[in-house]
């Protein structure tokens, strides 16, 4: 095929044409003079120029005989806006988001300190919070995320921070591996997000209890612990953030893995912008998640570590879930002192 026009142009041509066909008379001589068969004009004087074309469209596109459709773009100054975003806005925003998140968490830690486990009658007894498969899904996703985040940040900060330290060659190697890992680990990450969606969707449907939980600031402020199901509203937020951001990252990421498969240069630029912006928000969000799951709260880590949490802790933080679990089966899924005899 010689030259592929844009659909847009075809559309315009077709519109003009339909009008012209309707208007034209049947005589051959007249047909040759209508708009379809231009004759007699001065093609030299009528030549198109850059200014004129830019008035019609922000980028200049023509026909090209090679099958690479994107090569038909002659000039797309929008690359400049993309550059402004990538080289000015993005580093600042990223730095702000990442460092800001760390700073906030630091402040929180400084003022609130580690949330300690409240001792109670059930302290010391364990209840199974996440089974092996759930933990596998979590850790697969999260380990991928960490590498994706680091390698992603490398696209922004690598040349600014790492490259001066280790030199261009070494950095080239690092960056190359980072790029490979970013692309290849995207797949297990996407699978992980999908798994988590399937596993935990039913426990993450927002409900009224969440409102109360939020009103009580989740117990972070004050002494009282609001009620919560398997997941409290905060955790639900993390879940929905992971699902939402994860899907967005997946879609935009896939578009970049298969560049130009579904969109043109403008679309690609947009994909990259979205991917980067959500990416840094995601990182900031996950930093908080990591904080609360580890340093921020005593006992929380066990949920994903061994899968078993302290029953006392569970009753405080997820009272409704513990009740539910215990109601399902007198002994519940917990292990420990009240081991249910086999029936």
């Amino acid at each position: 095929m010689r030259r592929t026009p844009t659909t847009f142009r075809t559309l315009i041509a077709a519109t003009i044409l339909t009008a012209a066909v309707g208007a034209s008379s049947t005589s051959f001589a007249q047909q040759t003079r209508d708009g379809l068969n231009p004759t007699g004009q001065n093609p030299t004087a009528e030549s198109v120029n850059e200014e004129f074309l830019f008035k019609q469209d922000p980028k200049i596109t023509g026909r090209i005989s090679i099958p690479d459709g994107k090569a038909a773009n002659l000039i797309q100054p929008a690359g400049r806006d993309y550059r402004d975003f990538r080289e000015w806005w993005l580093p600042w925003l990223s730095a702000l988001a990442v460092l800001g998140a760390i700073a906030l968490l630091g402040l929180f830690y400084f003022f609130r300190g580690r949330i300690l486990m409240e001792r109670g009658p059930d302290t010391g007894r364990k209840i199974l919070r996440f089974n092996g498969f759930e933990r596998f899904a979590h850790w697969m996703t999260s380990s991928c995320f960490i590498i994706l985040a680091l390698s992603g940040l490398n696209y922004i900060f690598g040349k600014r921070l790492l490259m001066p330290l280790i030199g261009a060659d070494a950095f080239g190697v690092v960056a190359q591996y980072a790029k490979f890992s970013h692309i290849y680990l995207a797949w297990p990450f996407m699978i992980g997000v999908a798994l988590m969606l399937v596993l935990w969707l039913k426990d993450n449907i927002p409900n009224k209890i969440d409102i109360a939980w939020i009103k009580a600031f989740g117990g972070f402020v004050g002494d009282k612990h609001p009620s919560a199901g398997r997941f409290n509203a905060g955790q639900k937020m993390v879940f929905w953030m992971v699902i939402g951001f994860g899907s967005a990252m997946s879609v935009t990421g896939l578009m970049m893995i298969f560049p130009f498969a579904l969109t043109d240069i403008t679309g690609m630029q947009l994909m990259q912008v979205i991917h980067a912006l959500i990416g840094i928000a995601f990182i900031a969000g996950i930093l908080a998640h990591i904080y609360i799951g580890t340093l921020g709260m005593e006992g929380a880590y066990d949920a994903m570590g061994s899968g078993k949490v302290d029953l006392g802790w569970a009753k405080v933080h997820h009272d409704l879930w513990v009740e539910q679990e215990q109601a399902k089966n007198a002994s519940g899924p917990q292990l420990g002192r009240h081991q249910v005899p086999a029936e």
Binding site: Q41, E46, I64
Partner: peptide
């Protein structure tokens, strides 16, 4: 590459 603008029309 060579891109043709206004392909096939006066002003090409």
């Amino acid at each position: 590459r060579v891109v043709t603008l206004n392909d096939g029309k006066p002003g090409e």
